[in-house]
Simulated assay, not measured.
Amino acid sequence: MFIEIAYGKEEYVMTSVLEILPNHITDHIHAVLEDKDFDVQEIRLRVNQPVELNNGRDVRWLPQTNFSQSDATMFLNKISDFSLYRLEEELRHGFITIQGGHRIGISGSVVVENRQVKAIHHISSFNIRIAKAQFGIIHAYTPYLITDTIQNTLIIGPPQSGKTTLLRDIANYCGSSKLQLKTAIVDERSEICASINGVPQHLFAPRIDVLDRCPKAEGMMMFVRSMSPEVVIVDEIGSERDAEAIDEVIHAGVQLVCTVHGKSLEDIRKRPTMKKILQKNIFQRFMILSNQHRAGEVTEILDATGHSLYKSRVNIC
């Protein structure tokens, strides 16, 4: 019952973002939000510069705005609840997750010790990535991905093509009454679930368990050893340790759905680590995404041999 209520609806909540922005900026952003043809994905704030909005393809500047140093100080205080010490660990990773699942990237002067980032001081710019939990995207592709269970699937796409959005929707589908699979999400960078204090900010099906901010390789093995999952969901694979953990997951009889940056199957085959993973013939399906028209646009689905099972009718050239 839980997930059926959510499916078919687009959750696009800007309230928590607008509440922390300076008032002289929110009025101008409201005007852009009224344009339904411009789906804001990022709001970029740079000290002494006008505000930039983008939708993954186009950019809109708000020339009437100027993000001042005092605006930056107040904004940082608001997103940290006036306690930077409380968010020290998040700041070291270069981002803060706020209510609603929105992620705020930061940049400024980096303090490094023993080749590790210890802090970021004198923060001069922010990138607010708008969290948009979309449900039902996967419905059009289930005939290609699902038999009695989800096929081992690798989602391939460039930045801002909707890989994580699609991954989140697949997780919901697997954990809902549609498949009723015990679904485990290893969310290393809090991008899939956008958890705050361990609680996912996105709406999820009842049969989903989450390891937040846990390295992918360790998280996959922790789930296999202790939570008896039927499907494991991870974002952005590519390291040697990921390859070893993936091998263990598959040999434990657990299905796997994950993403990787790339433009095509041929593109990722050129990378040494991905080449090793692909040579094991783990994946039964490859979903190719594009950011040419909209986030989450699937242009092609391939089987294990690279044969095309589905091709979008939209001309992406």
Rank of each mutant, 00 (worst) to 15 (best):
I3E: 02
I3M: 12
Y7Q: 14
Y7H: 14
E10T: 03
V17T: 04
E19D: 05
I20T: 00
N23S: 05
I25A: 00
T26F: 15
H28V: 15
E34P: 08
D39L: 07
V40T: 05
L45G: 00
R46E: 14
P50W: 10
E52L: 13
S70D: 06
A72D: 02
F75G: 10
D81F: 08
F82A: 11
F82H: 15
S83V: 13
L87S: 14
L87H: 15
L91Y: 09
T97M: 05
I98C: 01
G100C: 10
G100Q: 04
G105C: 00
G105Y: 05
G105E: 13
S109K: 07
E113D: 03
A119K: 13
I120K: 03
N127Q: 01
A131F: 08
A131S: 10
K132R: 09
A133N: 13
F135A: 09
T142P: 11
P143D: 12
Y144D: 07
L145T: 09
T147E: 06
D148N: 13
D148R: 08
T149R: 04
T153N: 10
Q160L: 08
G162L: 10
K163L: 15
T165R: 07
N172P: 14
Y173A: 06
S176R: 02
S176V: 00
K178Y: 14
T183G: 15
I185G: 10
I185Y: 10
D187F: 11
D187T: 14
R189M: 08
R189E: 13
S195V: 10
S195Y: 02
V199G: 11
Q201S: 05
A205E: 12
P206C: 02
R213I: 01
P215D: 07
A217N: 02
G219T: 00
M220N: 04
V224E: 01
V224S: 15
R225W: 07
E230P: 12
V231P: 03
I233Y: 15
V234R: 14
I237Y: 11
G238V: 01
S239N: 04
E244T: 02
I246L: 06
G253K: 05
V254C: 07
Q255E: 12
Q255Y: 07
L256N: 14
V257L: 14
C258D: 03
V260Q: 06
L265Q: 04
E266Y: 11
D267V: 07
I268H: 09
R271G: 02
R271F: 05
T273N: 12
K276G: 10
L278E: 03
L278N: 04
L278R: 14
N281S: 08
N281T: 13
I282T: 12
F286Q: 00
I288R: 00
L289R: 02
S290V: 07
H293V: 12
H293M: 06
R294P: 08
E297H: 12
L302T: 03
A304S: 02
H307R: 07
S312P: 00
S312G: 00
C317Q: 15
